[in-house]
Design a protein around this nucleic acid. Structure first.
Lengths: 216, 216
DNA sequence: CTATGTGAAGGTGTTCACAGCA
DNA sequence: TGCTGTGAACACCTTCACATAG
């Protein structure tokens, strides 16, 4: 929920999910001003969509002119809390976990991976980018000490629910789940986003040999 | 578009995206009959949702009884074309590409990765699971020879649009894009699914410190 | 009497169209 | 005049409620 003109509005989840795309488009533009039309083109959405999304949070533009790039960048970063330093822990230093840590190292997403843990003694102590793999046992301590707000689950399906429960109990508010299983979270204050590669590929199979569109 | 009782109905994309979850839930059930209620529980959706989704494709259940697991499995596999052997090519044998190939090797998703290509001479010829990394130049030939219908893009942002264009020109109908950029596809017969880890994590940051729900 | 299949109702998100302001 | 900001119209998806079939 965000405040706007003293009035509370419900922000659609879909809007939140588009903001990072706008943010990226803004950083790639060489210009210092954009219109909803140019920003939309660069991020793959319609101009109306851009205006509506931004208007949920305030009147950032100038009529007849457009939006100031650095000001809008600031605003979106603020809305997403990216200006406050969001820290995440990766649970599971397997293939996907390590790929993810290195990937994030390179990409500078403003979400910092502050710890990687695993249950396997063989990988504990291993270097991974600028981090060292730590024991799963330390999970709760790490989350408290480093003020971690996000958990990324890359363990096998069998262990995922247990990890999820521990993350939630330790006070994490957002979970990115790559484990091929559907998680149950009691606490409605915790947001879970699933990315299931197998499910994704199976759904895509439907469209092999079927008419469909990229972005409707 | 699917035929049902000689009548054509438009299938919601959301329905297609849930089918793989039902499929997984069916394989994990030890039973040989399920109700929409139990199937929904196992996959994380409501019983009404399950019934509506399945009803788009026909009347697979028995009133007062439920659904036969092996029959329903067959039907869903058929709808998703998983019974026809869907083949995919991974473009980009970097960290993410290799993690994905090995992951898919293990998971048995019924979508087979039939080729991995890269532009880097150093990795070309390298073994990757049961495959060998082949030159990017061979992309069109491979797609034609092996009847590949799906492309998985794991190259850096800068090269992604070019790869996408080549995949589309070569006749691929579904694309899974991991490159951190928004792709433009002219052909409306081609379906593109983006998975952008950076965008995903940035969107999640919003929910760190905000009330939200897992599945509404 | 149970659980499916489905029209109708309700909600949520997107597009339209234009008023309002630089 | 040009582009934002926004109510209204629309499209889409989910939930409800129940007739229907085994």
């Amino acid at each position: 929920m965000q405040r706007h003109d003293g009035k509370l509005r419900k922000i659609p989840e879909t809007t939140i999910r588009r903001l990072p795309a706008y943010l990226r488009a803004l950083t790639l533009t060489g210009l210092d001003r954009v219109t909803s039309e140019t920003l939309g083109q660069a991020s793959g959405y319609s101009s109306e969509q851009v205006r509506k999304d931004l208007a949920y949070f305030g009147a950032f533009g100038t009529r007849g002119v457009g939006y100031d790039v650095s000001m809008l960048t600031q605003e979106i970063r603020h809305i997403l809390q990216l200006d406050q330093g969001v820290r995440a822990v990766v649970v599971g230093a397997g293939r996907l976990g390590t790929a993810l840590v290195r990937h994030t190292d390179e990409m500078a997403s403003d979400v910092v991976i502050s710890a990687v843990v695993d249950i396997n003694p063989v990988v504990i102590g291993t270097a991974l980018g600028h981090l060292t793999v730590e024991p799963l046992d330390h999970l709760e301590d790490l989350i408290a000490e480093r003020d971690i707000g996000m958990g990324i689950i890359t363990v096998p399906a069998a262990g995922a629910q247990a990890v999820c429960n521990r993350l939630v109990a330790a006070g994490v508010h957002a979970i990115l789940n790559f484990a091929p299983t559907s998680l149950t979270v009691g606490n409605p204050e915790v947001f879970v986003q699933d990315i299931d590669l197998t499910l994704e590929m199976q759904a895509l199979a439907y469209f092999v040999g079927t008419a469909a569109r990229t972005r409707p």
